[in-house]
Write a protein that binds this DNA or RNA. Structure first.
Lengths: 219, 219
DNA sequence: CAAAATATGTTGTTAAAACAACAAAACGGA
DNA sequence: TCCGTTTTGTTGTTTTAACAACATATTTTG
């Protein structure tokens, strides 16, 4: 097991290299390899394990009753998936996890995290804290996206998104980490319609922009 | 302090009445009362405390740069708020918390949860586990809502929502926990447009419904 | 039960976004 | 610098949802 890699992940953050192997044993961890397109877990399964992507990538997707498919997330190496489900009992998966390419996954038993190895070892506690942080951060990110997409107009979505960015960056002059296509996907709108709306907002004098630099204006 | 009430909350679940007072002390807990409309915390603050609503209710809201306001959540008695922010360092609040009525809030230091009282007391661990469960559950709920609202059409949103309900209820005949207005708000669409779309879907033969009972049909 | 209140469904109009197709600008090597 | 590529912006058309106003059904309650 590549302990260096693991120590660099958010899940094992703060845990020493030499502690890893003991910890993995006590968490019932095991690894498994998947070919491209292979299912890692399926909708309806009861996820007992947290998945940590060691190499490759995982796609989280959902098929509805009539067969329409939608991709919910891409999980890169070093990131975890299915953690929310593994930590709640009796909550079957509502999504599928599929290997996006040749992928290796480390599985960690979710129950073992809640009820540790008898002796409350300190690095066990670290995992819990790390998970709590990962989960809280994800929460903030999800809540934000819901906020930004709650307006029914593209202009409304842009205004709430840009406002928060300005707040975060502490200035009304901001740079965003998306190109137009990514921003459109994030806000759940059409790219060309987004461009058109931005240009209208500039004409209306509520903002100015160039590429991904924006300047919000009070009138 | 009403220990019976606290034991019934998700945050203090599994903790014994007689343990509560000691625990509260070790978590630096304190209570505060607010009048209707009073701000509990403001956007930009660094939330150090988890808030637990003891009585009344709290509204989580957001104002954008240009003054548009939107309500993100209503927190009822027994539920927590600001927990995600309190658990992550250096993440200033992007929302305001306002008392919806005369409200009393119990605050618990987020840092104290991560670095406990020296002796790793077992009920301290319970709080962490409870928080992890609360956070994971919230995650699942938020992810779901994002999934359901990711389609650009009302029909698409309905199909993904109803599919999941059918999966959860283990049948293609389901009952939903919303009336039309609530469902429309949840899916972020107009009520009357929702009604119209439902009726069109019935005409198209992909479902049948009466009030909040639905029957999904394969063709 | 009848009246009032609430919830659901229908329809026509208007506003907005999706979509498509293309123009212009910016970028990145060769 | 020039050419190919990618990104961004523009415009017209079509689709869809919002909106408004009202009809019908259902529930509540005096």
């Amino acid at each position: 097991m590549n302990t260096d890699f693991l120590c660099g992940t958010a899940l094992f953050n703060g845990i020493k290299k030499e502690e890893i192997n003991g910890l993995l044993k006590c968490l019932n961890a095991f690894t498994k390899k998947y070919g491209k397109g292979e299912y890692i877990c399926r909708c309806g399964d009861t996820a007992e394990n947290i998945g940590l992507v060691l190499s490759g990538a995982v796609i989280i997707k959902n098929d509805d009753f009539w067969g329409n498919q939608s991709v919910l997330a891409h999980i890169a190496a070093g990131q975890v998936f299915a953690e929310s489900y593994a930590l709640i009992k009796n909550q079957p998966l509502l999504v599928d996890a599929v290997a996006a390419s040749k992928t290796e996954v480390l599985f960690i038993n979710g129950g073992k995290i809640n009820s540790p190895c008898g002796n409350l070892c300190p690095c066990h506690k670290k995992i819990t804290d790390n998970l709590l942080r990962i989960s809280a951060l994800k929460n903030v990110r999800l809540s934000r996206r819901i906020l930004y997409t709650s307006s029914k107009t593209i202009r409304g979505r842009l205004m709430s998104f840009l406002s928060d960015e300005a707040r975060e960056q502490g200035s009304r002059k901001i740079t965003i980490p998306f190109d137009r296509q990514q921003l459109a996907d994030y806000l759940n709108v059409e790219r060309s319609a987004l461009c058109a709306q931005l240009s209208k907002m500039q004409k209306d004098g509520i903002l100015e922009y160039h590429k991904n630099s924006f300047m919000l204006k009070t009138q």
